[in-house]
Amino acid sequence: MSDKEMRKGITTGTCAAAAAKAAVMAWLGQPVTVLQVFSPQGVLLTVPVAESWPVAGGGMAAIIKDAGDDPDITNGVRIMAEIIITDKPGVVIKAGIGVGTVTKPGLAVPVGEPAVNPGPRSMITRAVTECLPTDKGAVVTISIPEGEKLATRTLNPILGIVGGLSIIGTTGIVEPMSEEAFKNSLVPQISVVQALGYTDIVFAPGKIGQDIAINRCGLPAAAVIQTSNFIGHMLENAVKYGMRRVLLFGHLGKIVKVSAGIFHTHNRMADARLETIAAYMALNGAPQTAIEEIMASTTTEAAMPIIARYNMTEVYSVLAERASARAKRYVFGDLTVGTVIVTLQGDILGLDETAREIGGHLGWNVGTR
């Protein structure tokens, strides 16, 4: 029996364009329960309309976001558009409740503008223009009632998008479980750091590392971004965006994988954490019993007391140096890389000299500890 094919969905951009078109149709006295809009690539997409109604000088409509089988936090969310008809041709797009506003440079949308990306903007403009009389224009206000709450669970606060969600989607279609889409959603963080004038950037695999880097070590929040498991992908894009130096900053469990040359750090892709620790402990002269205890551990947290008991804590700095060397090699020497390894409580286990240089340049408060 073959696996069931994953169902595709529609982006927030498609929803916004469909809501805008449905609002125009309501103003025209021709309400619809389903309609079609063009994707940026010219593909016709069919979208159900939850409701629409005329208002003074225009119309309103709502679309329920259907993300298909993708685990999207906006699935089932109501996306609304209000249209006010003007006598001046052209379409103006505004952010309503729950749609963010851009406050930092470096994104596809200028500072001060609604966080509606170029693809959705083109879709909205085309959908509205198709229905309007040629001598009319429209002001389109996109709203997501739940948007401000949901935005706290996205990268928007880090990217400087305040007040709600972004209206996104380069194709209009959500491909279910798209790892590539998630990887690419992380990259704009780098462009924001670049636009703020930094040539040094801090990569933290997760929020815990990011918080420690900022709150415990005093690294500038604007330069510290999350990579998730995609450290290799983000290193490549750091090169693309002209970064000069990268400071890898994270928990032993993630960094030790980079020390072994693993740049997709999800545990189902590759592991070798304990084997790597054991190998470098052996290289530094650890006794056979220490290696056996490390290999019998289940987590890197469990390995730490063993490392301390055998007075082998210098291995952390060796692992940091190795992670930096492997990362630099990964991008063919196009970046200088330093590494800091921390505990979940925020204590520094090990770091290399390059990390001290980069951290010092960024004004951290680690000093010589």
Rank of each mutant, 00 (worst) to 15 (best):
10 I>H: 00
11 T>V: 05
13 G>L: 03
16 A>T: 07
18 A>T: 07
19 A>D: 07
22 A>K: 01
24 V>R: 04
32 V>K: 12
39 S>N: 00
40 P>M: 01
43 V>F: 05
43 V>W: 01
45 L>E: 09
49 V>G: 02
53 W>F: 15
53 W>R: 14
63 I>D: 11
73 I>R: 07
77 V>I: 15
79 I>W: 01
80 M>I: 13
82 E>P: 01
82 E>N: 11
87 D>G: 07
91 V>Q: 02
93 I>A: 09
100 G>D: 04
104 K>H: 09
104 K>E: 06
104 K>D: 06
121 R>E: 11
122 S>N: 09
123 M>T: 01
129 T>I: 11
131 C>L: 15
132 L>E: 10
134 T>D: 13
144 I>E: 08
148 E>M: 13
149 K>M: 09
150 L>W: 12
157 P>R: 09
159 L>V: 13
162 V>I: 15
166 S>P: 02
170 T>G: 00
177 M>V: 04
184 N>C: 08
188 P>V: 00
190 I>V: 14
191 S>D: 07
194 Q>H: 14
199 T>W: 05
201 I>V: 15
201 I>F: 04
204 A>D: 00
209 G>R: 04
211 D>Q: 15
211 D>R: 15
213 A>S: 11
213 A>V: 02
214 I>D: 04
216 R>H: 14
223 A>L: 04
227 T>M: 03
228 S>L: 07
230 F>S: 02
232 G>R: 09
241 Y>R: 02
259 S>D: 08
260 A>T: 03
261 G>N: 04
264 H>W: 05
266 H>T: 10
267 N>C: 08
278 A>L: 04
280 Y>Q: 05
285 G>H: 12
288 Q>K: 15
290 A>S: 12
298 T>M: 10
302 A>F: 00
313 T>K: 12
322 R>G: 05
323 A>E: 02
328 K>I: 06
329 R>Q: 15
329 R>T: 14
337 V>F: 12
341 I>W: 06
345 Q>S: 15
345 Q>F: 10
352 D>C: 14
356 R>W: 00
365 N>L: 03
369 R>S: 12
369 R>K: 10
